[in-house]
Structures are given as structure tokens and as C-alpha cells.
Simulated scan of single mutants.
Amino acid sequence: MAAAQREVWTGAQLRRLLIDKAGHELSSASISALMTKQPNQVKLETLAALCTALQCTPNDLIEVDTSPVTQPIAPTQTRTIARTAGEQISPAGRTPPPF
């Protein structure tokens, strides 16, 4: 991680660096989440502040998996229609209502 390369090992160090170099303040909980797990989302303002504070680019902070995702093929449904002698089928494939 970019923080480790710049010898930022604790949340307190990162918090001070963000305030001093980027003028951006994050809560202790937000700093902890950034340091311990992969966030689901990050505000662009926060990303820019991290890049400024750590003197890096977003590419140094974000790892994107670009491998293709394989999706299961939906099974095709086959329908069997039982017909009686003389039964008419409408163009839409439906039988008319009985009279």
C-alpha cells in the first residue's frame, strides 16, 4: 500500500498527514476502515486528499480486477402443447377461450 511505502503505519499518522498535507479531516472510524479493510466506496474528495497526502496517484491506491466474469447460461425452456383434434391455436400460441 502507498501508506506503507511512505512509512505511515498507524491510523493516527494517516489522520495527521491528511490534515497537514491535504487539509482533509476524516473520523477515526473512517481512518480505521481505510487501514484495515477494503472499502466499498470512497468519496472523490477523500481519494484526492489521500493522493495529495501520500504523494501518489489513484492507481497506487486502487487495485481493479479486470478479469472477465463468467455468467451461467440460463436454461432454455421448452414447452409442450397438447392439442386435441380440431383445436385452433392463435398466432400468439394461445388457445382461444371455450364458447
Rank of each mutant, 00 (worst) to 15 (best):
Q13L: 10
I19H: 07
S30A: 14
R83G: 09
W9M: 11
P98T: 02
A3R: 08
G93S: 00
P58Y: 09
D65K: 12
T80F: 04
F99N: 13
L18T: 00
D65C: 14
I89P: 03
N40L: 11
T76Y: 02
R15P: 02
Q55C: 08
Q77M: 10
M1S: 07
G93L: 03
Q38I: 12
T76V: 11
A2L: 04
T57V: 02
D65Q: 12
T80Y: 01
D60T: 02
L14C: 08
Q38K: 11
P96R: 12
K37Q: 13
C56A: 10
T80A: 02
Q55I: 08
T70P: 01
K43T: 13
H24A: 00
P68W: 03
P91R: 01
R6A: 11
Q38F: 08
Q13V: 13
L14V: 04
D60Q: 05
T10M: 07
A53Y: 00
T76C: 03
C56L: 03
T10Q: 05
L34F: 10
T66P: 00
V8R: 03
A3W: 09
A2P: 06
Q38P: 06
D65H: 13
I89E: 04
L50T: 07
A85P: 10
P75F: 03
T84C: 13
R6K: 15
L47V: 06
F99M: 11
Q71Y: 13
R83H: 13
E25L: 08
L26W: 02
A2T: 12
I31P: 03
Q41M: 12
Q41P: 10
Q55Y: 03
N59K: 09
L61G: 11
Q55E: 15
V64G: 12
A12K: 09
D20E: 15
R94S: 11
A85Y: 11
P72G: 13
P96F: 07
A2I: 09
C51T: 05
T76I: 11
T57E: 14
V64C: 15
L14A: 09
K37V: 15
K37A: 15
G11F: 05
A82S: 06
A33I: 06
G86H: 05
W9A: 06
F99E: 08
P72M: 10
D20L: 11
P68V: 09
L14N: 02
T95W: 06
T46W: 04
R79Y: 02
V42M: 05
K37Y: 10
L17F: 00
L26N: 01
A82P: 03
A29T: 08
E7S: 14
L26R: 01
T10I: 11
Q71F: 14
A53R: 02
P96V: 05
P72W: 07
I19G: 01
T70R: 09
T80M: 01
P68M: 07
T76L: 06
T70Q: 08
T84F: 12
S28D: 15
L47N: 13
L47Q: 07
T36M: 07
C56F: 04
T70S: 10
I62Y: 00
P68S: 15
V69Y: 12
A2V: 11
D65W: 08
N40S: 11
D20C: 13
M1R: 04
I81A: 05
T70V: 04
